[in-house]
Design a protein around this nucleic acid. Sequence first.
DNA 1: TCTGGGGTCCTAGGACCC
DNA 2: TCTGGGGTCCTAGGACCC
Length: 416
Amino acid sequence: MSGGPTILHADLDAFYASVEQLLDPALRGRPIAVGGSTGGGVVLAASYEAKAYGVQGGMPGWRAARLCPDLTFVRGTFGEYPRIADEVMVILGDVTPAIQRISIDEAFLDVSGSTHLFGSPATIARNLRRRVRLEVGLPISVGAARTKHLAKVASQVAKPDGLVVVEPEDELAFLDPLPVSLMWGVGPVAERRLAELGIHTIGDLARTPTRALERLLGHAVGERLSALALNDDPRRVASGGRARSVGAQSALGRRRPTPELVRQVLSHLAERIASRLRARGRAGRTVTVRVRFAGMRSVTRSCTLGAPIATTLTLTEVAEQLAWQAMAGQGETEISLLAISVSNLAPQQVIQLELPLEPEDPHRPGSPTGVSRLALDASMDAARARFGRDAVGYLPALVRRGGAPDAFRELAERDL
DNA sequence: TCTGGGGTCCTAGGACCC
DNA sequence: TCTGGGGTCCTAGGACCC
């Protein structure tokens, strides 16, 4: 660990909303929400002008509209977000190759090897902020500190459009008065449990015995929060790490789970997941299906197969069985969401001998199985690559459209 | 008046093995 | 008489992050 504040955390402010204000000057200085509407849907991002009214991401549109009557809902130009975020990342990458992007709009940088070329970390941070503002047109906040956790907390404190540098001798004093909710890993549940013990600030947390936190929040969370509050964070800036799961979900409103609906939705999800797996040269052994009922209660069922799969039809069939298992005996008549996730990932063999669930499906003689399924998928992948996403597909998958805008789905599933 | 979509990690219990 | 101990894998649920 180096001595100075050489870790930067750079975080674009209210990214989607800022892009919309950049693209449409009429929206600048005004409270806007990307996604959602007065009638429904959820707000994906709120401008700072809207946040001042309490509007937040994840909030139902009708509630946001009630909090802020002047709120302007914007549909969202999702196709632009990756391109603009990538431009910012290129600027950040100009000062160091040691960059770890952790989402579309934020990254850690280790600038310890860059100071002889570009000046102190504070100077580097100021220049990066200036360049992003001038060349891209967006506000970006930066935190600079000795560790990742401190840098991340500092960038949160710096928002909006600010820079906070934490010198090593100021670290504990910096953390002490901050609310626990600023810590990575403290969500609504942990915050509430901590508050019940009178723990509100990171300083309170640091003064609480580790064992007490472990009893309250579980071993892993308690131990980690205790370490972070005491400013012990050994994590390094490291790019990489392959995904451990690939999934997709679809909200349905309230629907009766007919066999047709379940098959349609699951085959659509399976097609999206399987094609992404194949594009990455991966396959997975564990399939998990989640069913959410009308009252938001959800149930999952999973199974681990003998061999990894990456074919659309096999995944659809496994998912269908799991979905009916999940719904059996639950006493529910309506569902509001179906989700599939594939984990236990492994590299996909060049020639994958994927066996169907049964040698032949007796109910659908002639249905493609095994190697022929993979060949079918491969030809569809190729057609999609040439003619676009909707050019070809399994029939049930083609039927199901709607829900979130497709551009938003594509944004969410993009590899960083 | 009713909540999107993509992920990661942890926990607890049970099966199973040596 | 009353049943070890450790490790691994699997499943279901849940908290959390962007």
